[in-house]
Write a protein that binds this DNA or RNA. Structure first.
Lengths: 339, 339
DNA sequence: CTGAAAGCGCTAACAA
DNA sequence: TTGTTAGCGCTTTCAG
């Protein structure tokens, strides 16, 4: 079928009346080919509409010119943008990217990695589903470089790209504190995630520095973050002065939940949120957020990977990108300004 | 490097003390292998941590168990969700998906397709950058099945998955008309896109049915949709009563532009928008939108593709999925309800 | 039931 | 500068 119509390099060589190797040389623009034969080959290639079979090439060269990326959830705009950035750089380097989602499940993640490895990917960018321990290094062959993305894995030495989670959380909390807010509650999910832990740590540091008792309300899984949960866990006993949400999904759900409770985020209770998103500035009041450079994160991850792929050695590198506090109104400020 | 540590099927066969072919048989659970040898092979596989090389397998079998997807812009939530849906189905079928973005540029699109084809993809799902004419069939080998996604291509017979663009636009317009709004203007971009044309057609049909003059304001490219453009093109001469935005990006930009002009969408001027997105319901007033089943679109595209891949013939099919009018407040309604 | 041998399309030693 | 000859890791006739 495909076979029938796809010319191979042998066909090209025949058509150009040269040897297979000469054709191959032209294809890879190696030196040592007379211009005349090169011409003939190029013409033959054009005439036949020949396209090299990358599978065959990869089989021989032990590489696929493909990298894998595993993310927990592609629907999260943060992730989508990061993928976009990664892909751009990959394309510029002549690589393609195979995308896989783990849904935040380490088992799925593991199985996806195995599939990817079977596809002979040359590198892997992964946002680990669980950073508490190494759940996959054992199935990654030597020679396949790994970059972790957005998360770190305990006790594992691989290149990584993250943001200043702790400091951002601290700054956001400080900002809230600066408004005279005292009973600030942090809302997040999946306590075991690196990002969650770091952000909680930053929040707690800030609270403690102000001699205040931190209050951290975490759900095991995002699906548990409902209006009922908010009413029960956050509002029941001690009414908070302000809320800090620790990631995009939690922000969404908190916003929705609050509305069900007839409260408006930012008006009835000040709110600062992790992760910026389109139209966060169009809400009323406009949401104050920690903006993460998602696309840049993706690009940096790719950059690290391609440096390794091009043979660069050295100890592993941890890139930490700065976030940006975008102060709008939901924190209690009344004019737009950017810190 | 990788080579050194990766056991091959030959190693497995040796370890199990059977022939290569027997090992291969076990790997593909073919019949005709004595249970005893099968056991030996399976043990050897486990012991060695053997993983089949899909590249080699694909080379032989003329397939890669990989499909390609080309989208204009991954950052669009509609697209991200569709990719997610596609990927899920692909995974369930043992396929992986290579993602590429065209940025809406047919040349980039073409070059990405060529790369994908070189990678021996078994199928391609594509949201064409330009549906006015066929810009790529010539480079797709027979045997690689194509499904177009969100768009149709003039005069090309391939499977497709789209939504009821025309009818949705018509219904949205009718709804606005039902509020007594008369001077409704449609705002969109890239007149040549199938989705744009269809939506415009639906809008116009609705206006004409009401004996009203349609007014369509289109920008060549989204980047041109600024507050200045709105002031000049939409508001200068004839003040519209209401706005219908024709896709997600245009909705974003119109919302922002309006604010710059000190107008609030839905309050100062009723607005109905194409494409739902997270928090559209949290805006004030909440946005009335045409909701597209993005993830389902992705899933259906995958389904069509896999039907073809599993040998199903027949003439090409055009799946058209219904959208849902989600009536919130920006259209002029004052209570949430869903049509 | 099993195995030897011939490739899939390409690249790379090694000669000529 | 060229071409011949082996494979990469796997599947698959086709004999045993």
């Amino acid at each position: 079928m495909r076979k029938s119509d796809a010319p191979t390099l042998v066909d090209v060589a025949q058509e150009a009346d040269v040897s297979l190797k000469t054709a191959s040389r032209v294809l890879n623009n190696s030196k040592n080919v007379s211009e005349e034969k090169a011409q003939r080959v190029r013409k033959a290639i054009a005439r036949l509409g020949y396209r090299p079979n990358e599978l065959a090439r990869g089989l021989k060269a032990q590489r696929s010119a493909t990298i894998g990326m595993i993310v927990p959830n592609l629907s999260d705009p943060f992730t989508a943008n990061a993928v976009h950035g990664l892909q751009e750089v990959a394309r510029a380097n002549g690589y393609m990217v195979i995308l896989a989602s783990s849904g935040g499940d380490p088992d799925v993640e593991r199985s996806e990695i195995q599939t990817l490895v079977g596809r002979q990917i040359d590198g892997l960018v992964i946002a680990p589903a669980d950073g508490r321990r190494d759940t996959f290094s054992d199935i990654i062959p030597e020679g396949v470089h790994v970059v972790t993305f957005d998360e770190l894995i305990r006790n594992v030495k691989v290149d990584s790209v993250t943001v200043t989670n702790r400091r951002s959380a601290q700054e956001a909390t400080n900002h809230l504190l600066g408004h005279g807010l005292r009973k600030i509650v942090a809302i997040g999910a999946r306590a075991y995630l690196y990002t969650c832990k770091e952000r909680v740590a930053g929040y707690e540091a800030s609270m403690k520095a102000a001699s205040l008792a931190p209050r951290v309300c975490l759900v095991k899984h995002e699906s548990l973050l409902t209006a009922e949960w908010l009413a029960e866990e956050v509002f029941r006993n001690q009414k908070p002065d302000a809320i800090l949400t620790l990631n995009w999904v939690c922000t969404m759900l908190t916003l929705r939940g609050l509305r069900q409770l007839k409260k408006t985020a930012g008006r009835d209770i000040p709110l600062f949120s992790f992760d910026d998103f389109d139209l966060a500035d169009m809400l009323t009041p406009a949401l104050s957020v920690v903006h993460q450079p998602a696309e840049m994160l993706g690009r940096e991850a790719a950059r690290l990977l391609f440096e390794r792929l091009s043979g660069k050695g050295g100890s592993c590198r941890a890139i930490v990108l700065p976030t940006e506090l975008i102060i709008r109104q939901s924190c209690g400020c009344h004019r737009d300004r950017t810190d």
